[in-house]
Amino acid sequence: MKGLKVLRIGPAASIQDRGRPGHLDQGVSCGGAADLVALAEGAALLRQDAGLAALEMAGIGGLFEATVPLRFALTGAPMAASLDGAPLAWNASHQMQVGQKLDIGAPRKGLYGYLHLGGGIASEITLGARATHLMSGLGRAVAVGDLLPVGADRGREVGLTLAAEDRFQGGELRIVESFQSGLFSEEVRARFAETGFERGSRANRMGVEMVSQGEGFAAAGQLNILSEVIVPGDVQMTGDGKPFVLLREAQTTGGYPRIGTVLPCDLARVAQAQAGMALRFRWVSLEEGLLLQGNHDKQMRALPSACQPLLRDPAMMQDLLSYQLVGGAVSAEADPFGEPHDFGDTP
């Protein structure tokens, strides 16, 4: 088999695609890449299908060696990257020859970086997708010695770049009311949007903790709720009224009440926030939410035409330099996620 040999890798790297929607009735949540924008950007940069699988690297990259000439692209949280020692532009597509080594380090900002191969990673398909879903027993974390098999690549173009939407430093999350919002008083819902949160230390691909000062956000009659369907973006209140934003790999049902649902187009911003980043919620109406999501989807479809040739002009180098300075140094923890947590009112 031909592809990319893994010589060094962080503890939470996995093969991801857009996940496996449509299996809720079998207890299988959608899962897939934590940052779908990055997945679409990689596909655009390599001029290929956005359904192909890529390597998701959480908090730290790895060292890779090509066993076949291949094209690749780097997207998501900008990480230090070099090919045989020569620095590489992030959010860009490049060429790699047999035996060349690609070294990817820690993120300058954000959490999840993505390595895309021309032709995609052709790993085994289970339940209709390649996405690793650890809790469901689908796939496993990528380990040293693995070979990421490359699919048939019909493209040839490299040296493209895209301006990345900055979703790596927290900010505002738009949220719509959902079927359990009414369990929370108007006062609690208003206070929720007035509160400044920080991304807490408990976070993984299933969900992300939000920490704030002061009183929690309790529902009325919280104890007696039937377990109900969970969708990505649901903001669940645990027993002490502390919010968790659930991501695409959350379990399919849960008994904790949910105050609302973050728009799908803002979920990358949640996943990419490092611990301590400031985040806040803003209520939007269903109509406004549909409009915002529609605009985002349109932008995603336009990504292929937004790709530009990668230029090495001084103005751009200056730009890259300031980018690094603003991002600051980020320590690469061994485990970017901190302690595990029961997100789901475990049965």
């Binding site: 079927f179 008083s185 969708v231 799908p264 549909l290």
Partner: peptide, 28 residues
């Protein structure tokens, strides 16, 4: 929100793109 008597089944939205049809608030 007033806890008025509700007639089941009730219809509620789920996020942006879902509809929930609920037949009871307790398991029967």
């Amino acid at each position: 929100m007033a806890q008025a008597a509700r007639d089941f089944p009730i219809l509620r939205t789920v996020g942006l793109d879902g509809l929930l049809v609920t037949f009871a608030d307790a398991l029967t």
